[in-house]
Structures are given as structure tokens and as C-alpha cells.
Nucleic acid binder design. Structure first.
Lengths: 168, 168
DNA sequence: ACCTGAACACCGTTCAAGT
DNA sequence: ACCTGAACACCGTTCAAGT
């Protein structure tokens, strides 16, 4: 008889992803996750090696979602840039888990990071160095906004307009 | 008779700062800090309210050090920008504690953040929005470099050159 | 094959008890 | 006035024991 009660590995990953999207990476603990799955924390280790494997799944989901979002945006630099910001703000917990927490490279699907990097370089145009500078600008803006570093009376729409002009 | 054995508040802060500079914020625990001061963790609470008060001190030291560094750099945009990067890389643990960890505003010396922001805007030139975009670019570059997001064969010197051209 | 309680080495913090 | 051990509610992880 197959077990009908225990969570599958996919179910564990999905629940962890929801948990992080709702409450942030800091709230993801093996005990909190186990609670949601109605099991005890040690049982998780029959399905995954450790917490990093779970975080790597979340980062992979973040990278993929981020790339998808850029792909479906209208094909102008302006639209892609605003899509970058919109996605980051709407998925702030995922953005943080994916782009602020150290990337767990060895646990990520092979080639995923390279693929996305290549795509970002494509839309940034010119060469790798230029693309990296553009990415840094967008990431810096989002990062400072998410971490609450800009004064609350700051005009961020205008700031992004100026940023667009810089890379124009 | 005055106590001659216990650490002063200043000593606690200094030891915490050294600890973070050497090992990073993640290593700063009340128990590790107490060990360095040859006392037990609960004793720290006779001198400080909580761990946040200690982290706020470190962030204040980070902001001040960062501003000092910009002030002593040669008075060209180029020199200021390269000083920004150099300081961040040489003080990576401090940069992270100050610019990646949420800023503990209510525990910081009054006016400190505003003062530095004003200074950054001054050297970035033009208006607040432009200055914020420039800051975001520099912060993004440093952040992505510190967190190891650029491939190791990336030419970062050239990337910074391109960044300089963007804001030129 | 999967789940569990107990345990270990951590964490921030509180508090009664010592000097 | 300061320091302490014990405790509480956490954390990731291991492991012997149950089914």
C-alpha cells in the first residue's frame, strides 16, 4: 500500500514557496514549514537534504518568475525597465530571497543563472560591461526602495525616469 | 569603590564593532560578544537595552566611516566614485551591516542619515532624483559584487568605467 | 518507508539569586 | 551596582525508536 498521508517533495517545495511569498524568508523555518504540512520538523529530512535545498528551490522559482516577467513585457527598453520594478515590488519577498540572499549556485538547476544573465544582457544591449552597469542600476533602485532607504517623500517615479535617461 | 572589572558601554560597542568587521554581522551574537568581554550574555543587558542598540551603533559607525571616506577623496566625481567602491570592498562587513541590513533609524543619532544623504546629493550634483539614481547605480554595483553575483571572469574595472560614463 | 520525541548546539532575552 | 545560572521560546539538524 502506498502512503497517502505524507507530503510529496513537490508539496514541501510549494508550501515553502507560499510561506516565503506571504511572510518572507526570515519566517521560513523547518518547524514553521512542518506545521503547515501537519508533520514535525525532523520528518522533513526524509524528503530533503537540508534547508538550503528548499531555499534553492525558492531562488530558482524567483529567477524563473523574474525572467518570465521580463519576457512578456512589451519589447521596448522603457517597458522592460518598468516591468523589472513592478515585478520586484509586487514580489518583494521573492525578490529578496532571490537577489539579496546569497545565491545557492551548486543547488540550482544547471544553466539557469547563465540563461537569465544572457537574456538580461540581450535587452540591455551593447556589451557585458554595459549590461552589468544597467542591471546594477535597476537592482540598486529596487534594493534601496525595498529596504526603505529612500525618504518617504521621495519621488520614485521621477527617480526611475532619470535612471531611464541615464541608460538611454 | 567603583567597579574596575566590568566593561563600559563604549567597550561593549567597540568590541561589537571589531567582531562585525572581522567576522560579519551574522557572527554577532550576544553570547559571542559576551565571550570576548569575558562576561556572560545576560550581563550585557545591564549596559544595553538589546541587540538592536548594538547594531545601531555599528550602523552609525558605518555611515560615519563611509561619509568620511567620501570627504577625503579627491574632489572629482571620478575619484569620489572609485572611493565609494574601494571603501565598500575594504569594509565589506561594515557595508553589509550598514547598507543591506534594515536601518535602525529610531536608534541612530538624530540627523546622521539626513546629513550624509545631503552630502551624497551634493557630490552627485543636479537634483535629488538624479542623485538617487546615481547612488542606486553605485550601491547596486557594490551590492552585486559583494554578494558574488557577477561571474568571476567579469571585468569589474571596465564595468565601473561604463558606469562612470552613464552618470557622466 | 515514513513519522516521531528527545536531544544537541545554537539564538535573544528575562529574572531571581548572589556579591 | 553588576554578574550569574537557569529558564523560556526559538533555530537547524541527528538519531534511535516506533509503525
Amino acid at each position: 500500500m502506498a502512503n497517502t498521508n505524507g507530503p510529496t517533495k513537490a508539496r514541501i517545495f510549494d508550501e515553502a514557496l507560499s510561506l516565503v511569498e506571504e511572510r518572507g524568508l526570515a519566517y521560513l523555518s523547518m518547524r514553521n514549514l512542518a506545521d503547515r504540512l501537519h508533520i514535525k520538523a525532523p520528518s522533513l529530512y526524509k524528503h530533503v537534504d537540508n534547508k538550503d535545498e528548499i531555499i534553492a528551490y525558492i531562488q530558482a522559482a524567483g529567477i524563473t518568475g523574474f525572467a518570465e516577467n521580463l519576457k512578456i513585457a512589451r519589447n521596448t527598453r522603457n517597458a522592460k525597465v518598468l516591468a523589472y520594478r513592478k515585478w520586484a515590488i509586487e514580489n518583494k519577498h521573492l525578490y529578496e530571497a532571490t537577489f539579496r540572499y546569497p545565491l545557492l549556485r551548486e543547488l540550482l538547476p544547471k544553466g539557469l543563472e547563465e540563461e537569465v544573465t544572457k537574456y538580461v544582457i540581450e535587452i540591455a544591449g551593447k556589451d557585458h560591461e554595459h549590461a552589468r552597469a544597467v542591471w546594477a542600476l535597476l537592482h540598486g533602485l529596487v534594493d534601496l526602495e525595498l529596504i526603505g532607504r529612500f525618504p518617504k517623500d521621495a519621488n520614485l517615479e521621477l527617480t526611475w525616469e532619470r535612471a531611464l535617461k541615464l541608460i538611454g
